[in-house]
Each structure stands twice: as structure tokens, then as C-alpha cells.
Design a protein around this nucleic acid. Sequence first.
DNA 1: TTTTGTAAGTAAGTTTTACTCACCTTTTGT
DNA 2: ACAAAAGGTGAGTAAAACTTACTTACAAAA
Lengths: 201, 201
Amino acid sequence: MKSVCKSSPPGKIKIMASFSTLMGTKNFQSITIAEIAKNAGVTEGLIYKYFKDKKDLLHQVLHQHFAGFLSLVQDRTAAENSCMEKLEAIVLASLESYNQNRVFARILLLEVRNSPAYFDSCAYAMVKKYSRLIREIVCDGIAKKELKPDTDPFLLQKVILGAIEHTCLKQVIFDRELDVQAASSGIINIVSYGVKNNGCH
Amino acid sequence: MKSVCKSSPPGKIKIMASFSTLMGTKNFQSITIAEIAKNAGVTEGLIYKYFKDKKDLLHQVLHQHFAGFLSLVQDRTAAENSCMEKLEAIVLASLESYNQNRVFARILLLEVRNSPAYFDSCAYAMVKKYSRLIREIVCDGIAKKELKPDTDPFLLQKVILGAIEHTCLKQVIFDRELDVQAASSGIINIVSYGVKNNGCH
DNA sequence: TTTTGTAAGTAAGTTTTACTCACCTTTTGT
DNA sequence: ACAAAAGGTGAGTAAAACTTACTTACAAAA
């Protein structure tokens, strides 16, 4: 659960940087420990001084990226007033981050969820914070009558998170650019007003 | 791209069945070729007669499951008339399938997307059919004025697919039951009418 | 019937790769 | 000053994916 604080030894920093760089061009499976070590200018053994195993390295690198991302999201939402503005800020910040930091996006969306160890990692703890933030905004929106009173906060959180992830999934996988602004306002528009043509807009 | 047709040799059938069973209790990484072979009552070598590698086996098993799933979805949507009813049928059928067939769900949602080879596989070809079906229903709904004219079919398809996946993700990962009916109607309700309290419902 | 070609299946390697362990070297607290 | 801990090394191990050379069954052509 401990994070990479300022006083990390240079070896650890180099290992994480090396791995992060390699993730830019290859997927997790095809990156070898030998490659990471060589690229970092350290020996293979040192990797296992700081990381339980290869997966643990993945999780710590994700945690590092997610920490920055989460504080950005928190700042952006704090700057907004209404519930829907806060939610749009989250959607926009998320898509922006996934669009700009493809390594982060690929790790989060494609690489970690297949291993049980991830769900005990400090990285997953941050993801839980992130989804809790969304639920809290939703609950607040219901309390302030900005959202319909019968809204299910858990379900809405999942719909929003699912929409964010699936909207950029193809772009992340095939390394294409995403029109973040259009996607973001599109998602918020659907979630706000729905798509059914009921003559009310 | 070739599927497992009726005339598959018994060895291949046993290998796929063995692997599918093992996926019920373990994740892909932790299943070994030796284990699959032993469980199937064949030798390791035979696996490489029918499958390029371990990942190819995974993809072919997913293809097998997805073929059944897709035809179910096609039948169910064909039985509905309106656009929203068709979409609800898809959401319901998807959540039902993921809830009942956890091996299928885990492979699709957690195991395949990390490898580039998947996106050349016959399994991914079926996924493309599935998402195209959703888009076609949406386009039809727009044409028939059931949906708002400014709806983006690609975006709506992604929002719906993302909502489906994220709604059952936690249950699939932690092997818990899902209230399929409630989740399905909840998603459709959000997507149809939105969550914003605008005094119009 | 013999031959020939192919698909099903085997068994023993080989190689790659994640991980370990015993050992140095440098820093730090008392 | 010196013990102890932290940073770092490099050779070695074990396991698992994959290969390859081989055998057996079997159907169709000659």
C-alpha cells in the first residue's frame, strides 16, 4: 500500500521509468524483466528488491500515474458548482488523461484487471476513491434536486465510468486520436437528457 | 478465422472443453499447458497441432461462446418492434449471459484485450458484429424518429456497451450475483430519459 | 491389394523468462 | 568507530511455453 514517495532510491525510479517507457511501445506480456533491467541500467535482481514480482511493478507504475490523475480530477471538480458541471469535469478530465497518457490508459483499461493481485494493490485503492468521488457527486446532486430523485448512484457511476472507458477504448487500443471535447459533451448530453425523442428538450 | 465446426477432431474438442473448465476456477495466466493437456487426456504437443499458441486457444474458446451469445441477441432483438425495446433486449440478454456464463464474461471482459492478436481473431470479428448490430438499431431509431435526431450512433453504442460492461464488471470479477433485470431497466431508463431533474418526465 | 498421402496423436527435447539467493558496497544512526 | 541497514550485483534455478522428430490410423488412388 505504500506509494513511491520523494525519497525513492534512484534504482527504483529508473526501473519504473524504464518500464513505463517500454509500455509505450509493447504490451505487458511481451516486456521481459531482462529488458526492463537493461533499459534502466540496473541488474535483474534489483527489480525484485523493490517489487514483489512483475505484476507488482505494473501496479506501482499505475498507482503513480493514477495519483496524479486523481488529484487533477479532484481539483477540477472542486472548481465546479453544479452536479452536472462536476460530472462533466470528471468525464472531460478522464478522457483527456487517457488521450494524452496512453501508457496510463493501456495499463488501466487493458492490463491489470485480469489478475486478482490488482484488487489488493494500492492502485486499485485509488480507483475506488475515484469511483466513490463520482457517487458522492451524484448523491449530492440528488440531495440538491439537480438529479431525479429515483437515480441510483451506484448505477449512474457505473454508466458514466463505462461510457468513459468504452468511448476511448478503441482509440487507446489502436493508438488513434480522440476528440475529447466532443466525446465528453456527447456523453454528458446522453446521460443528462437521454436519447428518446419525447418532444422535451 | 475458421470456426470450430461440427467435424472437429475429438482431441480438439477435449482441449477446448478442458480449458473452458479450468477457466471457471483460475485466470488465464495461471493455467498451464501441461494442466490443460492432462485435464483433457491428451499430450501437450497436440494442443499445438490445433492452436497456434495458448492465446489462440483462448480466442477460439471465446469465439465458440460468443457465437451462441450473438445468435441469442439477434433472435431477441428480431422479436422486438421499437428501437428502445430492441436496445433493452440487447442489454438484458448481455447482462443475462455475462451473469450466467462467467467463463465467457471473464474471458471477454478481462483476459483478451491486452493482446494485439485478439484484434485479428475470429472472436473479435464477432464482437464487431455485435456492436454493429447496436449501431444499426440506433440508426434505425433515429430514422424512425424514436430517437433524437442529433444522436451520434457510434457514441450511443459505446455508452450502452460501456454501461453493460461496467455494470457487471465487479460482479464478474468478485464472482457475485447480479440483479440482471434491475440493472437492465436502470440502464435503459438513464439512456432513454437522462438523469437531470428538468421537471419533464 | 498395394501404395500413398494425410490427419491424429505422442514423447522427449529446447529455450525463454520470471524469480532466487548469496554476496558485495555504501550509507546512516548511535 | 562500527554495527546495521539499505542499495546494488550476478550467477544460478525452475517452470512453463513451445518445437520437432517420430508413430499410428485411415482413406483414396493405383
